[in-house]
Design a protein around this nucleic acid. Sequence first.
DNA 1: GTCTATAGACTGATAGAC
DNA 2: GTCTATCAGTCTATAGAC
Lengths: 234, 234
Amino acid sequence: MFQTDVPFFHTRADPMAPTDTRQRLLEAAERLFGSLGFAETSLRALTSAAETNLAAVNYHFGSKEGLFKEVVQGVVAPVNRERLRLLDELESRSETGDSPQLDEILRAFFGPALALGTRPDAQGERLRKLMGRIRFEGSAVDESVHEVFEEVEGRFGPAFMRALPHLSPKGLFWRLHFALGVMCSTMFNPNQVQLISDGLCNPTDVQETLDQMVRFVSAGFVAADVEAAQGVTG
Amino acid sequence: MFQTDVPFFHTRADPMAPTDTRQRLLEAAERLFGSLGFAETSLRALTSAAETNLAAVNYHFGSKEGLFKEVVQGVVAPVNRERLRLLDELESRSETGDSPQLDEILRAFFGPALALGTRPDAQGERLRKLMGRIRFEGSAVDESVHEVFEEVEGRFGPAFMRALPHLSPKGLFWRLHFALGVMCSTMFNPNQVQLISDGLCNPTDVQETLDQMVRFVSAGFVAADVEAAQGVTG
DNA sequence: GTCTATAGACTGATAGAC
DNA sequence: GTCTATCAGTCTATAGAC
């Protein structure tokens, strides 16, 4: 998704050029959209960071929104591919009998997203923030991003259902919604937990974050349905 | 916080005026900042919605940011006051013996925020969204809002600790962070759960939302520490 | 493919009349 | 307190040279 779609037989003017304009724009956009969001990022800030000019954005991506969508898809698509690969692995293993455990499914879902944060230097931080931000970037995202998530929804939804046969559909959907909220707000706002805990919690530690997240969310998932609980306690 | 600070002995030019300019600005700002966010809301859209002019914003609030901060504090302050009142109630009751239960504390914390959604017409929707948005509106908020939350942090933090003596501080802070993520993402993005559940989950039903949220989060809170669990299972 | 130059509209803020 | 008029700057997008 990030590669230029130049056919392989095309001879570049300078095959060893450090990076071409299109690539530099995508990288600058990843950084700026990630840390500032769509509305707060101006094309001027973006093109000067990419050391090019306004016209290049329009030439390569059609518009600011076109660039944004391509950046988002470039970040989301590999994450979703890895999620599906991990789920495949879990489910093929379970053909012999036991189906995937809740914890395993959650790790397959959260892990690839959190792993964005492991990229070198500050780039990982920005990517993670961009990934978390997607859920909260209203209009600019919705249509184009939805389709990138379709396959993930279609595969993980049923997987959760099978792992949680006691839950009503309603209870499951609420919990899925909460789980997404936990993940996205953590990825979007990682320093907040560090702040309130006075440095005790380290959101840059992917393993720690993943462990804590899976523990919290899986406990929330296995809790009895609200209706069932009300039936018991009054 | 929303009242004009005119002393009671001041004679208004027209005491029965429907609402004065300052008030209309605050109400329009509540709506627009709530649904669009700070950056996407222009002062022009705002002043025309309030049926006044650009200069009025500067006269009454100094700047766009000044207006935003006053709106945020006007929404947050009463919510936090109600939270503290409910916690007082719980804790004074418990002087006779039992300290507040986790569920009760969570309801005292989530309830007043969710209750914003019960205001008539579409205003509640916007207020709820604004409240959820605060966590995700980077720069424009941080300093001024922090102080509004200080007392709530100082009171609820220890209350949670007392209700969850088994948790390490680290585990507790992560869970508080997750709980905020659940609440804010649900308030900011209420229609998403309705969408994925094909209408089965109804986020405009405050009671349903509160029940589901408390059930999920309280189960997450009582889960054993990550460290403790790792000590047992490997 | 890359650039300069600019169009055309919008931004927040302010001066100054009333 | 409220307004009009306007400033000085920003915004995205595009035309057209190379």
